[in-house]
Design a binder for these strands. Structure first.
Lengths: 201, 201
DNA sequence: TCAAAACGTTAACATAAGATAAGAAATAGG
DNA sequence: CCTATTTCTTATCTTATGTTAACGTTTTGA
């Protein structure tokens, strides 16, 4: 995949938020950088400000916390999705999470500074405000669903919900990471799976 | 509190997002309505599209789900905060939650239609895009913290965290509502409180 | 003011989850 | 290809939570 093909894919994926005309796209792309995040390397780390957003052309990442020396996975993103310690990016404050590549990731990135420049560039400002709004709003809806599932569902129900939404993309993810994503221990998820299997039978 | 005093308070509270000049403010306020939501009445209900956002001048509201005939509280907001079934407002799809007044609430409201008009009004569009973005981003940070607490903390730790953030405003809220907000049952919260008391002693 | 409803605690019991450890299976990486 | 690591399951034990019900207290609303 060459640079222009990658940009075309990125542009296509942005269309659910905003559509750039040619002039805008030229300026926008001047703020983009390509990078490779190799497997097990970190996109973000605690105590550090995450001043950038990435878009994964290929590869996937894992978001995790460290608590009492234990690594607790909170989220994943996959190809054609954004990657960032979003809260840190937004606030400019140090984040609390690790973001680690599960595979080699080909990324398109822009920094907070780039975004601020674009927000101050009359040619792009309006569209970037809208872009930022729509991304945040979209993200908010996902967060809302997730909080609701913690409030109203049991771990078993959350697991069944995850199965039913059938993100086959989760197939690749080790099960103990998924357990923490569901708010339980790997051992507990293993038991839930057995329970579910026996019930279905 | 008369109308102009109420508007002044609203304006002041919006300043953490955007600052309106006089011309903008005049247009903006033309889209606002005042209303009274009486105690126990609903601002939003499941199956209905919530097409508006409120700002509570006075009063507080409770957000809850119904599951198997049981009422499960997910959130609260208080005076000088926004009220909305935000996801429903954003998507235009029917919501899943009840929003019920805990006290009589004096509200300033605007509809989604009003917002869309303002987003299409050159005088206001840019500022409203930014407003929408900053509100969503701010909300996102709160949601992020909450999800993190479900992933990384025990119910007891979540309760202690809630105490320490010392929102005295929660003092007014019945404890069984807070239990569900923390993702546990009222009986369990009562036991946690006893445990904590005994430990402190 | 008074009866009804809501609220918080406690108890008893059943169930599920956490912690730890062990072992088998799958995977990774040289 | 082979070893080291990772991953998943299972077992045991402990602890926390859910469920239900009872009781006393407080609050509400007519």
């Amino acid at each position: 995949m060459d640079t222009s093909a990658a940009l075309a894919i990125f542009r296509k994926n942005l269309e659910k938020y905003v559509v750039f005309n040619e002039a805008e796209w030229i300026v926008f792309t001047q703020h983009l950088k390509f990078s490779l995040l190799k497997k097990k390397h970190y996109f973000a780390e605690p105590e550090k400000v995450c001043d950038k957003v990435g878009f994964a052309l290929t590869g996937s990442v894992r978001y995790f916390h460290m608590k009492d020396g234990q690594d607790i996975t909170g989220y994943f993103t996959f190809e054609n999705e954004f990657v960032s310690s979003y809260k840190s990016y937004l606030t400019g404050q140090p984040g609390h999470i690790y973001i680690q590549a599960l595979d080699d990731c080909r990324l398109i990135t822009f920094t907070r500074n780039d975004m601020d420049q674009m927000l101050n560039n009359p040619l792009l400002a309006f569209k970037m405000e809208r872009f930022g709004r729509l991304v945040a709003e979209n993200c908010l809806c996902c967060y809302d669903d997730r909080i609701t599932s913690f409030i109203t569902k049991t771990p078993e129900e959350r697991y069944l919900q995850l199965l039913s939404t059938g993100k086959e993309v989760l197939q690749r993810i080790p099960q103990h990471y998924i357990a923490h994503y569901l708010g339980i221990t790997p051992v507990s998820l293993s038991r839930i799976r057995r329970r579910v299997m026996e019930t279905v039978r």
